[in-house]
Write a protein that binds this DNA or RNA. Sequence first.
DNA 1: GAAAAGATCTTCT
DNA 2: GAAGATCTTTTCC
Length: 191
Amino acid sequence: MSNNGTWDWLRAPVEVAAPRLLGCNVVRELDGSILRARIVEVEAYDEEDPASHTHRGPTARNAAMFLAAGHAYVYLSYGIHHCLNVVAGEAGHGAGLLIRAVEPLEGEDVMLARRGTPRRQLTNGPGKVCAALGIDLSLTGHDLALPPLQLEREPERPASDIVVTTRIGISKAAETPRRFYLAGYPDVSRK
DNA sequence: GAAAAGATCTTCT
DNA sequence: GAAGATCTTTTCC
């Protein structure tokens, strides 16, 4: 599906853009093969959020999150794991959606070969998603309308299919309900 | 099966 | 110099 280069549907407050991103597909071109995965869990972050990297304004690391909606923001977590975000909101506003989990749709065999882990634990965490899709720091600031990493919009899911809970793995504002996931994947981030 | 600690590095205080 | 939007492996019930 073509987006015509416009990301109007992401240019909204993160809590509005988050449910729209659920169910969309990430398409990754890697070593001549196509990897496609459906986004099933995200977390919302913006400048007003004490837990967000952008809370204290722009820095060299988080500059990508201040770009226009539809760019990628990748950061290195604990020196080991990469995490992928989709920039949302107005340009200059420093907001994004962390992709916590995806469901393999195409090229699953390639992902399994890359990771060497069972299917159930293939993409059920932000670091694993990036490992499976071969995403690293070089993709920070990448335009998601272009290869080798693209975002395909899918019809928005009915609100009844979306569950909102508190976020995971943070210490500040941990009780704020800004984690969104699709019904049917209740344990996607559990071990 | 559950809990704890190790790995490893960028960014900010 | 310390903390962090994490995952894997080890250890101990």
